[in-house]
């Protein structure tokens, strides 16, 4: 009798799930699955303009010898290694501080810290490009404060240009991630924080012992999405640095775009590079999930 019920329930669950996911599945099939198969098909061809030649895995072999692709990937990783941790930590700290009781000017701070993410990627990249000019406002300010003796060529020095991109990314995305932490903090029950207060926990303890563990799912998910975002970085570098100087800020996504629209319109090779990116992102995400699930 019981077993019978269970089977029935399972069957009904099988139908229930479809009622919920049907729209997403249909849309995914048309606008993702089909294009993906098509792009796999493309990746086996080498193209130039309208000419297309079947090359089998030739594109993949070519990719392994492609120093520029390697360099672009290394740039992606550099951005990833510095920007994501800085951003996550700053975002958490901001969210936590904004959430402390009796904070004066809470509304102002919250609004101020939110502000960067209301700008579009194109807009802020254009703004930062102007601000970081050699004769621009950032150098003027630093020279006036006396932090630096001579202007820094932010956009043309191989080192500083990376710093510029990381600063820009942090500026734009920290407040954005903070939103998710704030939203996550809403779901932490009052009791938990009250209990910590009663136990006499100070700010640091509350932050590390209560907030962080409770927010873990949100942190994991912002880390993974930021990772994906950084690996797919495109709009910002295109508008801020154009990938230069000397490909020092060229990203993999920009290289893919260049192969599609700037060089020889070789969509086959672009598709190949895209698939390599997919594999890399998948591995990174799985690693991050595994690490976060360990404890």
């Amino acid at each position: 009798m019981k077993a019978h019920l269970k089977v029935k329930r399972k069957r009904s669950q099988k139908q229930e799930v479809w009622k919920f996911i049907v729209f997403a599945v249909v849309l995914s099939s048309i606008f993702l699955l089909y294009p993906i198969f098509y792009s796999m098909y493309l990746s086996l061809h080498s193209m130039q303009g309208l000419q297309s030649v079947f090359v089998g895995f030739g594109n993949y072999l070519r990719m392994f010898q492609d120093d520029i692709f390697v360099k672009a990937l290394m740039n992606n990783f550099t951005f990833l290694i510095f920007q994501v941790p800085i951003m996550v930590i700053l975002g958490l700290l901001m969210a936590f501080l904004l959430n402390t009781p009796n904070l004066k000017g809470r509304t102002f701070f919250k609004l101020a810290l939110f502000l960067p993410c209301v700008t579009s990627l194109v807009s802020y990249a254009v703004l930062f490009k102007m601000m970081f000019q050699i004769g621009g406002i950032i150098n003027n300010a630093l020279l006036n404060i006396g932090t630096i003796q001579s202007p820094i060529d932010w956009l043309n020095s191989p080192f500083w240009v990376k710093v510029t991109v990381i600063i820009a990314l942090c500026w734009r995305w920290t407040g954005y991630n903070m939103i998710f932490y704030l939203a996550g903090l809403q779901n932490i029950s009052d009791d938990t924080l009250e209990a910590a207060d009663i136990d006499g926990a100070n700010g640091f303890q509350k932050f590390f012992q209560v907030v962080i563990p409770q927010l873990k799912p949100v942190i994991v998910f912002t880390t993974i999405t930021s990772t994906i975002g950084t690996i797919q970085l495109f709009d910002e570098v295109v508008n801020l640095t154009g990938g230069g100087p000397s490909n020092e800020t060229l990203t993999a996504a920009q290289l893919i775009y260049n192969h599609s629209f700037i060089y020889t319109s070789n969509f086959g090779y672009s598709a190949t590079l895209s698939w390599a990116l997919v594999v890399i992102i998948a591995v990174l995400s799985i690693v991050q999930l595994k690490i976060s699930n360990r404890d």
Binding site: Q13, K14, L42, I231, Q232, I256, Y257, A282, S285
Partner: peptide, 26 residues
């Protein structure tokens, strides 16, 4: 959750990692 739905979900997560530039022409 069903077995199939979990599979679909995993595939969808993987889809998330594909750069838009790769799908432009299709």
């Amino acid at each position: 959750k069903t077995k199939t739905s979990e599979w679909i979900y995993t595939i969808i997560l993987l889809f998330m990692m594909i750069p838009l530039a790769a799908l432009v022409i299709p």
